[in-house]
Every structure is written in C-alpha cells, then in structure tokens.
Design a binder for these strands. Structure first.
Lengths: 150, 150
DNA sequence: TATTGTTATACTCTATAACTATA
DNA sequence: TATAGTTATAGAGTATAACAATA
C-alpha cells in the first residue's frame, strides 16, 4: 500500500506532522522517568537559564497561552523543581527560579534530550542538521506570517 | 529575550514541534471553510485515490488508532463525502469510497493544501524541499525505531 | 482464536472568556 | 484602563480496554 506516498508524502506539512508525532511518542519515554513531559521540560530549561523570569514572559517564549502556563508552572512547583516568588517591582508578577533539585533534573533532562535528539537525527550530518533547523525555522516563520496576526 | 535560542533552538525536535504547531494553526484556516480538518482532509485524500479501501487499512496508512478512525470516517460520511459499504469478501469490513461531492471537495482541498504548502516553504528551493522531506522521513523512521516496537 | 469495527473512557494539548489583584 | 495570573470550560488529538459480529 504505497500509493499514498504519491499524494500526502509530497506535502511538507504532512511529513512534518508525521515526524513530530513519532518524535513526541518516543520523547515521552525519555522524559517520563525524569518526572517531566515535553512542555515542562522546555519550561524548566528556560527558567533555569533565566532566573527570575516572569510567567508571562515564559509563556511568550514558548508560544503557550498564559492560562495553560499556569498548570505547567504549578506542576513544576509541586514537583519541587521551581520556586515562584512575588516580584518586588510588580507585585502582580511571579519570578520563577529553579531549585537545586530542579537544576539537577534540568541538567539531566537536557543531556538526555540532546542524546535523544542525536538519536532521531542518526545518519544526518552536522551541516545538514544545522540546515534542517534553519528550514524548520523558516517554515515556522512563514506559517506564522500567513496565519492570524495576533 | 534571545537566550532561549541558545538552548531549545539547538534541539531539532523542539524546532520540529514549533514548526508543526505554527503550520497546523494556519492550515486549519485553509481547511475549515471546506468543512475539513487536517485528519479528515488526509483521510479523504487517501480514500479518493484508493477506492474500496478498508477502514483498518486507512488507519494503518495514516498511523491513527482504529477507535479514533471510527469518528473520522463517520464525520466524512455524515458530510456526504464518502460512502461505507459492507465488503462482499469479508462482511466484517467496510469499503470506503468518495462520493462525487467528496471527490470535488477532495480535489479542491488538495489544491488548496498544495498552495498552502508552497506558502510555508516560501524561500526554500525545490532541491532543498525534496531534501527536507527526506530528512523528515529519516527522523520519523529513527524515532519510530527508537520507540515502542508495536 | 483472530480480526473488523465499535463503544466507552481518559488523558493531553490547546484556545477563549471572564474574573482578581495590582499597576 | 491595562496587565499578571487565575479559573472554568470546551474542543481537538490520542491511547487503551472491552465488546459484537464475522472470519
């Protein structure tokens, strides 16, 4: 049953979706044992490298709606990976920081995800890999520009 | 706030996810007016080019679990885009075929999606585009091989 | 026994409106 | 008035177990 290749497989967006789904399913097997899912992994990594970052800034960086970010930071806080402290300058805002435990788990998980990323790009050279990231960013920018101008 | 680029943006899987999310959001704006969503578009396109295809074969082609495929084909049938007839050879199975209306909508939507796909790959040459699809397929295969061997 | 389609279910992800407290 | 965080909610997408009809 290879005829479908002639149709959908010519569409970049379809291959993008198939690749993303396959990657996500396997990535969850890597992050699960560390007590993380894809989105909490990403959030923790950004918080770790931006101590004191605000929730709304984190949401913007990760392109996640603020209401959904609430659950994510609460999950990270409940796991003991981050602290949320009121900002002195703006008492509406929370400053996010990784705890020592969170630092440790973030470092471990970033290492694991980089290993994983090398696994899924097995057989792809370093130059191609750089170019691939460039192409994906181009697509993201094009799609965002074509879509709703929020 | 560009420091996150140094971390997550080096991960192919993260850029893949960002590109896929941006593409999906904009694609829905294209397919919605045609009465389709991404997965019903894909299913209809495959059914159209494989008249008499079975539901379970369609599910396997699209990598969708059978229980979820039930809703998809019912949606396409309710919209008048496909028919489901009992197979004479195997009376457990349904044969799927596009109706004239379904053929028309499928042709329109495939054209629209190809246009859309050219839009999101604007600035990417034809050679690069072919290579990109090859890289995405490689990643999908690698991730699938690394994941659960179902 | 195995397979096709089905039901029920549940969990994740995402998106919107409306609220509160602060600014 | 506007913004940060929150609540509630609803719609997709996805995954598993168990069933009836048929093979």
């Amino acid at each position: 049953m290879n005829h479908e290749e002639v149709i959908l497989r010519r569409i970049v967006g379809y291959n993008l979706k198939r690749a993303n789904s396959a990657v996500l399913a396997t990535l969850q097997q890597v992050l699960g044992p560390l007590g993380l899912r894809r989105v909490t992994f990403s959030a923790l990594a950004v918080i770790r490298s931006h101590p004191g970052l605000r929730q709304s800034d984190l949401a913007e960086i990760l392109a996640i709606d603020r209401p959904n970010m609430v659950l994510i930071v609460h999950e990270l806080e409940a796991a003991g990976f981050i602290t949320r402290t009121r900002s002195q300058e703006d008492r509406r805002a929370y400053e996010l920081r990784a705890t020592p435990k969170g630092e440790c788990v973030s470092e471990q998980s970033v290492d694991a995800v980089f290993d994983f990323d090398r696994g899924i790009t097995e057989g792809i050279g370093e130059e191609e890999r750089i170019m691939l990231i460039g192409l994906l960013n181009r697509i993201e920018a094009n799609a965002t520009a074509m879509g709703g101008e929020k």
